[in-house]
């Protein structure tokens, strides 16, 4: 037990503070672009609310992805699970306010089940997580598209408040994102499960020798990650007023969530990193969307730039790491 705590405490203190730097850099880019292009509306309160709204969908799923990557795994099925969750939610609700609770419960239960399956295949059957979750993603998408080919059902207007409602100037959904981030931060830093998560990701065999039941930790991380994907699906169903079987895949939430987690300083091999870096990575992506809109850069150069930025953002701090990377 003490070994796991040591590993958890041994998280780097002297490394580059990725999260604040990334956040400040993105913000500076945003402000400078808005001033340079004379689009001052982007700098008003409403402008910033719009900016944070762009973070929500990717942000929630990326929080979950942070956990799987921290534990040394990865989840490629999130995009497809998001589609399943969105469709299932609006299909069960069918516009009936009374069906909101059952729908939300069903979506979360299904998400947890998918996470459990992912975790079991990875931890018990010893299947590489990339392949396991790629396979589960394909299975989910196949079943989903076989039964739905378009928007199914709809969500009642009460449920749309989730995406469109506000407390004062702040949208509920943005608030939810930050509450979730805070909760996961607490879990990672203040609970035994959090310490075990870091320990398992840092050195699975070592953690097992220290008495940690690593299989359970991995399964737990996957269940939480899938729950986050389910929540993202609920958010998208609320925002789009219905779920369609392509919302997850079109959003490229699988690869983008992995990219923002790694940009945020979480080690792809596991064991190091955290949620604030991930949120900063999500903020960078939201900023890029807004900046590309302000400057009117065409779609194709935009892709080239985004690819280069992903590599450079990771390279900036990865370049100092020792040892080999594959």
């Amino acid at each position: 037990m003490s070994a796991s705590a040591d590993i958890a405490v041994a998280r780097p203190a002297r490394e580059i503070p990725v999260a604040p730097l990334l956040f400040a850099g993105s913000l500076a880019l945003y402000i400078v672009t808005a001033l340079a292009t004379g689009q001052h509306a982007y700098l008003t309160g409403e402008g910033f609310v719009g900016l944070t709204q762009r973070m929500v969908a990717l942000g929630i799923v990326a929080l979950g992805q942070t956990l799987t990557i921290l534990v040394g795994s990865i989840d490629l099925s999130v995009a497809n699970l998001i589609s399943v969750a969105a469709v299932l939610a609006s299909f069960i609700m069918k516009g009936e306010p009374a069906m909101i609770a059952p729908a939300v419960l069903a979506v979360l239960a299904l998400s947890a089940a998918v996470g459990l399956v992912n975790g079991l295949i990875i931890a018990r059957l010893d299947v590489n997580p990339l392949i396991a979750t790629l396979g589960v993603g394909l299975i989910l998408q196949g079943l989903l598209s076989a039964s739905f080919s378009n928007f199914a059902g709809s969500v009642p207007s009460a449920f749309q408040a989730f995406a469109y409602g506000r407390i004062g100037p702040l949208p509920w959904s943005v608030l939810l994102l930050f509450v979730l981030a805070f909760a996961i931060w607490l879990m990672l830093t203040r609970t035994r499960f959090g310490a075990h998560l870091y320990a398992t990701g840092g050195n699975r065999d070592g953690a097992r020798l220290a008495g940690i039941r690593t299989e359970r930790v991995i399964i737990g991380a996957h269940v939480l990650c899938s729950l986050m994907a389910g929540l993202t699906g609920l958010y998208l169903a609320s925002r789009l007023r219905a779920g369609a079987p392509w919302v997850g895949r079109d959003g490229v939430y699988d690869l983008e969530s992995i990219a923002v987690v790694v940009i945020g300083g979480t080690l792809l091999a596991g064991g190091r990193g955290g949620v604030w870096g991930t949120l900063a990575g999500v903020f960078l992506f939201a900023t890029l969307d807004a900046v590309f809109n302000m400057t009117g850069i065409d779609a194709f150069p935009k892709q080239v730039l985004r690819g280069a930025i992903v590599i450079l953002a990771v390279a900036v701090y990865a370049v100092r790491s020792r040892g080999h990377v594959a």
Binding site: A106, A109, L110, A146, N150
Partner: peptide, 24 residues
């Protein structure tokens, strides 16, 4: 238990989903 509810819901979706949309 929770798992079962989820799968039942998905199966319900599978059986009736095809009727829920109409492009014709």
């Amino acid at each position: 238990m929770k798992t079962q509810i989820g799968f039942v819901a998905l199966l319900a979706g599978l059986s009736t989903g095809a009727i829920a949309q109409n492009f014709n």
